[in-house]
Design a protein around this nucleic acid. Structure first.
Lengths: 250, 250
DNA sequence: CGAAGTTTTGAGGACCTTCAAAAGTTGTGG
DNA sequence: CCACAACTTTTGAAGGTCCTCAAAACTTCG
């Protein structure tokens, strides 16, 4: 897509359609939604906990994380949003944001008014169904994160997160030669893993020492998928690349 | 509701309507769905990971947990399902169950065919919207669990889970004099907290020693809400008792 | 009353944290 | 293109939280 093409929700629609094709009418309706495009620098706060956003945002390029800060100052990163992901689809129904979102790299964001999206969802059940499925996929990922921090060792946990990120990048064509850009510091990685940045660093070093991964700057290469999978128990099924079951609305 | 009244999804509908009333037509349609009622003993496995369920189940009475077992045998409990909760609404769209579910106490379950529910959801966008909102609430709870195991100390974590359980019981009228039935062993609690049962036991003992909680058999009493809240950082907002924002479908 | 399950206790050790500082990297302005 | 500041990664050492293993006390139930 050239820089001059006016942006749309195309990437999001593509993600929805990875799972099940939408009828032409529905696809066209989504792509015709009036959108707003914005660019932000890395580290910029995009949504603040407690806010009442009135637009839903899709990542066009770059990576966004959402997190909660606890009263003692510690931070838990709750999810990563890659190109094609909605950052805050939830806010279409829930008025108050319960977490903040930050740009991890320079990002381009395409947003639609929640009312516009909901109006479409009400008119086209297939769209509502697709949005619901998207929410369910996010929920499945969230469960996997709970398992990750709850029951896996620091080593396995780190490996698991990297494999998830790699697999999701692969699904959108951003994995090249087993390498992907991982635009996050080790301190940020630690906040996603429920570890300290010191220990996270030692885990990353250990993965390198085993030749499971290689890092150059912000590029990460998975060198040994099999051992990484064995170590972490990663199974990409929970990412639901296969789409929703056929049903009355399909 | 007397034991002779044929069961319906009434409790689930009541939960949906705690948030926003459904139009009469939609409520009637949900309550008219053909259902199947089953009773199970405690500890019975209700859904097995990898299965392809074709019915969605609502808890009429009792408590159900869903969990994943890792290859090393460790277990992470991912959620509790209280009366009125859907156990596997997700499976309406996702064919394969990605976790198992067990009855923690003797339970009564009312189930509907997924196809029936989805057909209704397609016919009535307000219903699809309500189901979607329910999914979003579950997702918010799941995020809180990730935070809990990721960034809170064992003490705070234990207190937080008990407060969540108490608050959810309160919402359905099952909290009496700050007391509720908590039908789970300390080993089970440990699997929800990402701790060992030994350490969980010490945390429970500590909460008792501070007179924050009291336990008699499977009954738990919250003796000091304020200190429990302070200790755990619990804020019930994430349980979304207030309902979805008004919108085109409301 | 015995069996099975649950809670509790103890001791030792491992994993991960905390604190502190050095080394390395990136970005900016002169 | 270098100098400098800011940030990120890495190292070291000490300590605490939580785990492991094992067994005893207690509870529940047939």
């Amino acid at each position: 897509m050239s820089a001059r093409t006016p942006l749309t929700l195309a990437r999001f629609v593509a993600k929805l359609e990875r799972r099940a094709p939408l009828p032409d009418r529905e696809r066209a309706a989504l792509l015709a939604l009036p959108v707003e495009t914005r660019r932000h620098d890395a580290a910029r706060e995009l949504i603040r906990e407690g806010e009442r956003p009135w637009r839903c945002s899709m990542v066009e390029s770059g990576v966004i994380s959402s997190c909660r800060i606890l009263r003692d100052g510690s931070r838990q990163i709750l999810s990563f949003h890659l190109p094609g992901d909605m950052v805050d689809l939830q806010s279409a129904l829930m008025p108050v944001a319960d977490r903040s979102a930050h740009a991890l790299s320079a990002v381009t964001i395409v947003s639609v008014a929640q009312d516009d999206l909901m109006a479409l969802a009400v008119r086209f059940p297939a769209i509502l169904r697709a949005l619901w499925f998207d929410t369910l996929t996010d929920a499945a990922i969230q469960r996997e994160w709970t398992i990750n921090v709850g029951r896996r060792t620091a080593r396995a946990r780190t490996a698991h997160l990297l494999l998830e990120f790699a697999s999701r990048m692969e699904a959108i064509g951003l994995l090249v030669d087993d390498s992907f850009e991982f635009p996050i510091t080790q301190a940020g990685l630690a906040d996603a893993l429920g570890l300290t940045h010191v220990h996270t660093n030692r885990m990353v070093q250990w993965l390198r020492s085993q030749h499971y991964i290689r890092t150059v700057g912000r590029m990460v290469t998975i060198e040994n998928w099999a051992e990484m999978r064995k170590l972490s128990g990663f199974d990409r099924a929970y990412l639901h690349p296969e789409g929703p079951r056929a049903g009355p609305a399909a």
